[in-house]
Amino acid sequence: MTEYKLVVVGAGGVGKSALTIQLIQNHFVDEYDPTIEDSYRKQVVIDGETCLLDILDTAGQEEYSAMRDQYMRTGEGFLCVFAINNTKSFEDIHHYREQIKRVKDSEDVPMVLVGNKCDLPSRTVDTKQAQDLARSYGIPFIETSAKTRQGVDDAFYTLVREIRKHKEKMSKDGKKKKKKSKTKCVIM
């Protein structure tokens, strides 16, 4: 069974824990209790493949930012979460993405942009803004509501699919490099 290491990042209060708990335990946590770091595991079937999701729910508070490099190193894919009623959390996505790329030393890291709290009427981040940002990053965008469960499975499952595509691409690139290195030079 394939294991996928997913990391949920975003500013404090955007609903990272609520999304994760909704996926794992099928219930909505409405009281806000700032996370330092929590880890969850769940076995699911995605596109006919049974897999184990190892999900790291991270601290959004700035005082825990020193811990970010460590979990970013171990993560295979990242859910970059903002709240649709919090423009600052949307603007912060850029910083999370840049930090992930720096730590992973790669421009090509599996990510999904997630606009959470889409059940709320007080939207300050337009869907088109988020779609445009995701398009500019070359990553999928999904709106979710941890409260109603809308888009929750889709967000995590899409990230797994992005990781699969990335692994497939990397193995193809690896095979191309191996083929090239088999060419021999004969000096007579």
Rank of each mutant, 00 (worst) to 15 (best):
residue 15 G to N: 01
residue 177 K to L: 07
residue 40 Y to S: 00
residue 26 N to C: 13
residue 60 G to S: 04
residue 9 V to Y: 09
residue 66 A to G: 12
residue 143 E to V: 03
residue 35 T to P: 00
residue 72 M to V: 09
residue 2 T to D: 14
residue 110 P to W: 00
residue 6 L to M: 06
residue 76 E to V: 11
residue 117 K to M: 15
residue 168 E to I: 12
residue 125 V to G: 09
residue 22 Q to C: 04
residue 66 A to Y: 08
residue 128 K to D: 06
residue 102 R to I: 08
residue 172 K to M: 07
residue 71 Y to P: 11
residue 166 H to F: 08
residue 43 Q to G: 11
residue 23 L to G: 12
residue 182 K to E: 13
residue 181 S to R: 12
residue 112 V to Y: 09
residue 121 P to S: 10
residue 102 R to H: 14
residue 177 K to N: 12
residue 19 L to Y: 03
residue 8 V to S: 02
residue 105 D to Q: 06
residue 129 Q to Y: 14
residue 65 S to L: 04
residue 26 N to I: 02
residue 142 I to L: 05
residue 116 N to M: 15
residue 157 Y to W: 05
residue 72 M to D: 13
residue 113 L to G: 02
residue 22 Q to A: 10
residue 39 S to I: 10
residue 188 M to G: 13
residue 17 S to I: 00
residue 169 K to V: 05
residue 24 I to S: 09
residue 42 K to Y: 07
residue 67 M to Y: 12
residue 157 Y to Q: 11
residue 28 F to M: 04
residue 67 M to T: 08
residue 113 L to V: 12
residue 49 E to I: 04
residue 76 E to R: 03
residue 168 E to H: 05
residue 108 D to W: 03
residue 11 A to W: 10
residue 54 D to R: 01
residue 136 S to T: 05
residue 157 Y to R: 12
residue 133 L to A: 05
residue 85 N to D: 06
residue 34 P to A: 06
residue 52 L to C: 14
residue 183 T to M: 09
residue 69 D to N: 10
residue 22 Q to F: 04
residue 72 M to I: 08
residue 108 D to E: 07
residue 129 Q to T: 09
residue 105 D to L: 13
residue 186 V to D: 15
residue 40 Y to K: 00
residue 171 S to R: 14
residue 26 N to T: 08
residue 18 A to N: 10
residue 69 D to R: 04
residue 141 F to L: 09
residue 84 I to S: 14
residue 74 T to Q: 13
residue 10 G to D: 02
residue 57 D to V: 00
residue 77 G to F: 10
residue 149 R to N: 15
residue 154 D to N: 07
residue 177 K to H: 06
residue 160 V to Q: 12
residue 147 K to R: 08
residue 80 C to S: 03
residue 60 G to R: 01
residue 25 Q to D: 15
residue 172 K to I: 11
residue 133 L to R: 04
residue 33 D to F: 01
residue 27 H to G: 13
residue 21 I to E: 02
residue 183 T to N: 09
residue 107 E to R: 08
residue 33 D to N: 02
residue 13 G to H: 14
residue 5 K to I: 00
residue 10 G to Y: 02
residue 108 D to C: 08
residue 64 Y to S: 14
residue 11 A to M: 13
residue 143 E to S: 05
residue 123 R to E: 10
